[in-house]
């Protein structure tokens, strides 16, 4: 069995832990509880007959990735950079953050995810497509595209 570390990161309040919980335990809570430090959990998947363990690191949100301890990212195979579709300020540092992550982990898979799709209209989604060009839009609340996001990452990591 293959094990891979996947880090969920982004500004605070974008729904990292909600995505994490939706994927791990298929649950959602409206209560906002800030993550302190880092939370780790694991989910095993079988892809084309091969088993893969995703060890997920849900990192406490920071306005800028500069403030996140670099050691949390080391040895990671994929990064999920999450922003909140209903809060454009969470996009403010995205370009700088992605540059920093690319420099820190050259060649590592990075997926840009626009979360809280359930809170915005189709117009906003179209605007965000142009503005941020995310790889996918998700909703931790409804579960939309969450499983697909992790499945896509797992497929990439196993190939």
């Amino acid at each position: 069995m293959i094990s891979k570390k996947v880090v969920l990161t982004g500004s605070f309040g974008v729904g990292k832990t909600s995505l994490f919980n939706r994927f791990i335990s298929n649950t959602f809570s409206d209560k906002y509880l800030t993550t302190i430090g880092v939370k780790v959990d694991k989910k095993s998947m079988t892809i084309e007959g091969e088993e893969i363990s995703l060890i997920l690191w849900d990192i406490a949100g920071e306005v800028s990735q500069e403030k996140v301890p670099k050691s949390y990212f080391l040895g990671t195979s994929a990064i999920i950079y999450i922003f909140d579709l209903s809060s454009p300020t969470t996009l403010k540092n995205m370009q700088a953050d992605l540059r920093l992550l690319n420099n820190l982990l050259p060649g590592v898979l990075i997926r840009k995810v626009g979360n809280k799709q359930d809170l915005v209209t189709e117009d906003v989604i179209q605007q965000m497509k142009k503005k941020a060009n995310p790889d996918t839009f998700t909703s931790a609340k409804t579960g939309e595209n969450v499983e697909e996001l992790f499945l896509d990452i797992a497929k990439f990591l196993i190939s």
């Binding site: 891979k4 040895g75 990671t76």
Partner: peptide, 23 residues
């Protein structure tokens, strides 16, 4: 050390997932 991925383990008792403990 970097990734927190488990290389090996041995245990006297049944515990929760070893990979999770390592992480």
């Amino acid at each position: 050390r970097d990734s927190g991925l488990l290389i090996g383990n041995a245990s006297l008792n049944q515990t929760i997932d070893k990979e999770l403990i390592a992480g």
